[in-house]
């Protein structure tokens, strides 16, 4: 048996390359959107929670707990199959984007909140004493420090959740896994699956190295 021919058949690679490249782009742009909106939403929620209003904090904590405790795949299936019975029909990629954004936001909120509560009170007071408003202290003094101390965690969590774009295959998003899966079924070859694994390596291996660099760079910085 020719191992290479099964997992890396040149003809099959050539046939499915264009589809695979398109799928890689889908994976990349959904990931980028998720990371941008997840970080922004998570930071925003942590900021809201800093106002120390119970009616604001409770829903945020509940949201963060649920999103961290539930498997994203379960959430996706509930939205994808459940919402239509309420007359709300979301496209497959939007369900993927929405769920991953919410999950990332939940983790980011917790990461920021832990830092927000642990910064010395004096940082808040020094800002207030110089006439900065609460919002100005939050934006100019507290958040920059929270970002700095948490860069490794934020990078790692963003990467982990970006890889969950693979779950899109379950609801039919034309990303890497789903394209590879149907290509494998059509061609009767394992090669498209190998191509998918290699595609992820090309995207995320450099990202892993980057996260190592970031970790070493920022680890002893505070």
């Amino acid at each position: 048996m020719d191992f290479g021919n099964v997992f890396l058949n040149p003809e099959i690679i050539a046939t499915y390359m264009p589809q695979m490249v398109r799928a890689v782009w889908v994976t990349i742009w959904i990931s980028v959107l998720v990371v941008i909106s997840g970080l922004a939403l998570g930071a925003f929620l942590a900021g809201l929670r800093a106002y120390q209003k119970r009616w604001l904090a409770w829903p945020i904590v509940l949201f963060a707990d649920l999103m961290r405790a539930l498997p994203p795949l379960v959430l996706m299936l509930i939205l994808f199959f459940g919402l239509p019975s309420l007359g709300v029909i979301l496209s497959d990629w939007f369900v993927l984007y929405l769920v991953l954004t919410l999950v990332l936001a939940a983790f980011v909120e917790e990461i920021f909140w832990a830092t927000l509560t642990s910064l010395p009170r004096g940082q808040w007071e020094a800002g207030a004493a110089t006439g900065l408003s609460f919002n100005q202290v939050l934006v100019n003094v507290i958040f920059p420090q929270a970002v700095r101390t948490n860069i490794p965690q934020l990078v790692n969590r963003s990467l982990t959740i970006s890889k969950m774009t693979a779950y899109g295959s379950v609801i039919g998003v034309k990303e890497i896994v789903s394209v590879a899966g149907s290509a494998q079924a059509f061609s009767g070859s394992a090669t498209p699956l190998t191509m998918a694994a290699i595609a992820y390596l090309i995207i995320f291996f450099p990202a892993m190295l980057l996260s190592r660099y970031v970790e070493n760079r920022f680890h002893y910085d505070h």
Binding site: E125, A126, A129, T130, G131, L132, P144, R148, H222
Partner: peptide
């Protein structure tokens, strides 16, 4: 916030902003 501008305060623990340069610490407010 406006009144606090007229009352400068110096703390026992300094509380400079560690992520900003000395100059930026003084210019922020």
């Amino acid at each position: 916030d406006r009144m606090r501008l007229q009352v400068g305060m110096v703390f026992q623990g300094f509380f400079l902003y560690p992520h900003l340069s000395v100059l930026k610490n003084v210019t922020l407010a």
